[in-house]
């Protein structure tokens, strides 16, 4: 494998990890506060659509991202109301929201498509090469020639680390996730913390969707997130509920995906030929990222949920 191929592989790894990272690092906040959120998928899908629509009609991809974040919050609010205020089961509420978003985005996109004749191509972000740094051999082209959203996603990781472990906010979030009753006694507003973290998670998941529709691509289609929200959710668990771990998990998945596409593109052809393998069914490489994650999970061992994860907190309950 020559240098260019390595750069290509690693650059693709980061690209593929970015939407997952947004959704996962945002979701990490509400997971740490004890709210399990597999509705990331629906929020990503909505974010992808809203970002595309707003960028398309306003001409500004940044406005698209902001609108996506707001739309993600709106759905998160519904999720939060049903689960935190009413105390409904978090997973089934998420299943419902995913279904609704699949339908809603489909309907709205069709209306938009019916109204606009001609090409449905939204303005996207230009690549920001970081001057100087992008000249470093290998690292430069891999790390410092990306869309602005990519840098943003990776900056959210140290931010999350800082918030969780160096601020009272972070302490409150973790306390709410581990022992809501104790946190409550100490004056932490359990519901408020959960609401806020769910809203933040929703906003970030939607931005992750925006990366798909107006970041690395310039269009939307129905169900284009294709399950990435679930993978982002897995990345949180896999990353043991830490920002750094979540990032590494997202990168591992991105790497496996980038690699399998290159296997299909023929980089292992000489190896296969020397082994006498004529043809590999495409399902095997396509499955690779999921298998790799599962195997990695096996070796990485225990990962403990926040003690109060998925448990509704009600002051009046005994």
């Amino acid at each position: 494998m020559d240098m260019d191929a390595v750069v290509g592989l690693l650059h693709a790894t980061i690209r593929l990890a970015t939407p997952l990272l947004f959704a996962a690092i945002g979701g990490l906040y509400n997971e740490r506060a004890g709210v399990i959120n597999i509705a990331l998928e629906g929020k990503m899908l909505l974010g992808a659509l809203v970002a595309f629509m707003v960028a398309f009609s306003s001409g500004s991809p940044w406005l698209g991202v902001v609108a996506a974040a707001a739309s993600g919050m709106l759905v998160a609010l519904l999720f939060a109301y049903v689960t935190i205020t009413l105390g409904a089961d978090q997973i089934v509420a998420a299943v419902a929201i995913n279904l609704m978003m699949l339908g809603f985005t489909g309907v709205v996109f069709r209306l938009m498509k019916a109204a606009i004749s001609g090409s449905l191509s939204a303005p996207t972000f230009p690549e920001w090469a970081i001057p100087g740094l992008d000249r470093i051999p290998l690292l430069g082209p891999v790390l410092f020639r990306h869309l602005p959203l990519v840098y943003l996603a990776f900056l959210l990781v140290p931010l999350a680390h800082f918030v969780f472990y160096r601020t009272t906010w972070g302490l409150s979030i973790r306390a709410v996730g581990e022992h809501p009753r104790a946190a409550d006694t100490l004056g932490v507003k359990v519901r408020a913390v959960r609401y806020l973290t769910v809203l933040w998670g929703g906003a970030m998941a939607a931005v992750g969707g925006a990366v798909l529709s107006i970041g690395h691509n310039s269009t939307f289609i129905e169900n284009m997130t294709a399950g990435r929200g679930f993978i982002a959710f897995s990345a949180i668990v896999f990353g043991k509920w830490t920002p750094l771990g979540t990032m590494l998990a997202s990168l591992l998945f991105g790497f496996a995906d980038a690699l399998q596409l290159r296997i299909q593109a023929g980089i292992l052809e000489p190896l296969f030929r020397s082994l006498g393998i004529q043809e590999v069914a495409y399902q095997i490489p396509v499955m690779l990222p999921y298998v790799v994650t599962l195997v990695a999970l096996f070796f990485i061992g225990k990962s403990h949920w926040p003690a109060a994860a998925a448990i509704h907190y009600d002051r009046e309950e005994g």
Binding site: G8, N217, I221, M224, A226, L261
Partner: peptide, 13 residues
């Protein structure tokens, strides 16, 4: 439906 992945597949090629 996975447009982003198709794009990545093309980039890999």
């Amino acid at each position: 439906v996975d447009i982003p992945k198709a794009k990545e597949a093309a980039i890999a090629l």
